[in-house]
């Protein structure tokens, strides 16, 4: 379970996260949506302990992550898998080394076991025979799938997806969302998906949180969002502009 309470974050004089409270129950997948610059990715990075908020608290399975050192963070981070917006694949490592990296960092497995696990995942994301390639030899869609594989290889109970389909064509996006959905169906993982692709996300999240200007303006299930009479919520959901 992730419990975010009263989180504030300033950039200069601007309040970029403005008093966010949110509880994500065990085993649910939450879609975090909102206009660009609303603070979605930032909130996710605060949860992952990569960005320190100016005040507030984030509890991950009961452990406070705000203000603790990198050493104490170790045990929390090994529970979290993260898919980064910019792929964040290590460009000096092959596909195989990239995907196996979390397992190697955790330790306790032989090279043989790691290789088997990597090969199994590469088949699952439909990228056979790419083990020895480097990230710059892959297309955007392929890189996203490698990043996905790296995020899930250690079977983390918590998964953060930061804009998993940004810049991808509809078919490739569909493939990525199918992978996310498959993960969700296994059950047990608590996850946050930040995305602009509302059409693709509609069916794969248990609930949605709409952010704007650093605040949560709405949260609820798909049905609740669609039934909402607030103009901004409906507009955003359907992607209508008024200017």
């Amino acid at each position: 379970m992730i419990r975010i309470s009263e989180v504030y974050k300033y950039r200069g004089h601007e309040c970029v996260i403005n008093g966010v409270n949110l509880v994500i129950p065990q085993g649910t997948q939450v879609g975090l949506i909102g206009p660009g610059g609303a603070g979605k990715s930032l909130l996710m990075k605060i949860c992952a302990g990569l960005v320190r908020p100016d005040s507030g608290s984030v509890l991950i399975d009961g452990t406070e992550v705000v203000g603790i050192g990198d050493v104490e963070m170790t045990s929390v981070r090994s529970k979290i898998g993260m898919l980064f917006q910019n792929y964040a694949l290590f460009d000096f490592m092959t596909v195989e080394e990239n995907i196996g990296f979390p397992l190697r960092q955790l330790g306790g497995r032989t090279e043989e076991e790691i290789r088997d696990e990597v090969n199994r995942l590469l088949l699952a994301v439909d990228l056979p025979n790419t083990q020895k390639l480097f990230p710059n030899e892959l297309s955007g869609g392929m890189k996203k799938r490698v990043t996905f594989a790296r995020a899930v290889i250690a079977n983390p109970p918590i998964l953060f997806y930061d804009d998993p389909t940004a810049g991808l064509d509809p078919v490739t996006s569909g493939k990525i969302f199918a992978l996310l959905e498959e993960r969700r169906e296994r059950g047990g993982t608590t996850s946050i998906v930040v995305s602009h692709d509302i059409l693709g996300m509609r069916d794969i999240c248990d609930s949605f949180v709409l952010m704007d200007h650093g605040r949560i303006v709405f949260s609820g299930t798909r049905e609740e969002i669609e039934a909402s009479t607030r103009p901004f919520v409906g507009q955003f959901w359907r992607g209508e502009a008024d200017d």
């Binding site: 980064f84 910019n86 290590f90």
Partner: peptide, 9 residues
């Protein structure tokens, strides 16, 4: 490119 964040994670 967030590789450093990925290392920290």
């Amino acid at each position: 490119t967030e590789q450093v964040d990925a290392l920290r994670m």
